[in-house]
Amino acid sequence: MMDFGTPVLEPGSANGTKQVPQFNPYQDNGGTVASIAGDDYVIVAADTRFTLGYSIPTRKISRVLKINDKVMLGTAGMQADTCALHKVISTRMRMYEHDNNKRMTFNAVSQMLSTVLYYKRFFPYYTFNIVAGLDDKGEGWVCGYDAIGSFEQRKIVCNGAGTKLMQPVFDNQVDWAQSWDGAGKPNLSLEQATDLMKDAFTSAAEREITVGDTLQIYKITKDGIQLEEFELKKD
């Protein structure tokens, strides 16, 4: 439904009798993206539910952009801004490849996204991003961003609506954060990380209305990128 935004009192209306609606350029279309990085792999997962208030206009929206064979960008938040941001990033990537005759590395992409987001510091992209990829040595890393480009390079990141539900689970199972001495910290394999991701999203889909439908899991390894689709609850 159309959103007229909050009414703004027209200047000069002393006791606020006249109200003028204002256009709200933002909208939250839901969605969650998450990523786990290992020694030689990264998995990026995103749900495909597109929500508008309490409605679901479509159940199959893609939130992940393939930047190149080693790096992917996942975005949750407003779909219009996501689309625009992805186009800007793709274009900048192609320009880089033309200018430098080499593929963009993970570190280059993560820095570029930060500056692209900060360019719009005073009218931000309503997007919550993660950049996931293999660095030059083949080790997996992820960067999580806020809407204006502040980022941190880590091994596990969640962003979007289901973050609060999923991040503690990843802290516990991947980082072994609640262990007293860190003994027995697991080095998750690709399969274990994928299973953990599916569990986390399934739990998030139970309790968060904007998470559900299908989960797209992209697995980035030195052999390339594979996609696995996993069905989540559709209610």
Binding site: M2, Q27, P57, K60, M78, Q79, C83
Partner: peptide
């Protein structure tokens, strides 16, 4: 496509 630039493709709209 809507007024905010939101765009998607679907089997039914």
């Amino acid at each position: 496509v809507d007024l905010l630039g939101t765009n998607y493709e679907s089997e039914m709209i």
